[in-house]
């Protein structure tokens, strides 16, 4: 009698636990299906971290396609204009290990400049520019709008007369950065010019 009772209690315990397991499993499955993470918003987040030069050096036609590719599992180290800062930010966002940059980071911020007297007005660079930063018309001189140029150098290759240079970007006065000296360990190493009153002491 007691044996039969214990078997029933055993079976009921197993049944209850199984039912619980199946029930919670179904609930979790339904919830994960219902509140699935928004794929496009992750792509959006990756896209914001990319430098938006639209240069195509990653092998994709623009930053957005590369962001989609990263989301599909492509490497995060293919963006030379972004450099190490972008790789670190992407690694943080995606929980991946930062890898060394594939390629060479540009040493300074460059913009395209058309030597206007050599331009023949072929419009090839205008068609190549991903951000419409070049103005001009057929058989007319072309020129680059510096503020709009991202420095992607996609216009260099199609130019038949090689009249486009990549020059350092001019910095507007409003974006001026103060010149800072490295903090020196020994005070007597300081140069006299560093004795400018920072917060003048009376």
């Amino acid at each position: 009698m007691s044996d039969a009772f214990s078997i029933i209690s055993l079976l009921s315990a197993v049944a209850v636990l199984t039912a619980l397991g199946v029930g919670f499993g179904a609930l979790l499955g339904a919830v994960s299906e219902r509140f699935k993470g928004d794929e496009s918003s992750l792509v959006e987040q990756i896209d914001t971290l990319l430098p938006q030069t639209q240069c195509g050096q990653c092998g994709y036609p623009g930053c957005r396609p590369y962001a989609e590719a990263i989301n599909q599992g492509d490497a995060i180290n293919k963006c030379p204009p972004g450099g190490d800062a972008t790789i670190t930010a992407l690694a943080d966002l995606l929980g991946r290990t930062p890898e060394p940059l594939d390629g060479e980071a540009p040493s300074e911020d460059l913009v395209a400049f058309i030597r206007e007297d050599e331009c023949i007005g072929c419009t090839k660079c205008i068609q190549a520019c991903p951000v419409d930063a070049i103005i001009g018309a057929a058989k007319q001189m072309h020129t680059v709008i510096e503020d709009e140029c991202t420095g992607c150098d996609l216009c260099l290759e199609p130019c038949p007369v090689d009249c486009i240079d990549m020059l350092p970007r001019s910095t507007p006065l409003a974006q001026w950065q103060p010149v800072t000296y490295p903090h020196q360990m020994i005070a007597s190493d300081r140069r006299a010019s560093m004795e400018m009153p920072h917060g003048t002491h009376l």
């Binding site: 896209d47 914001t48 990319l50 430098p51 938006q52 030069t53 639209q54 623009g62 930053c63 957005r64 991903p130 951000v131 419409d132 930063a133 709009e148 991202t150 974006q175 950065q177």
Partner: peptide, 20 residues
């Protein structure tokens, strides 16, 4: 300066999208 850079990247993105 960083904010300016971000704004510039955003601007380039919109121009790229507009062109597309």
């Amino acid at each position: 300066h960083q904010q300016l850079e971000t704004a510039k990247a955003e601007h380039a993105k919109h121009r790229f999208e507009w062109r597309q």
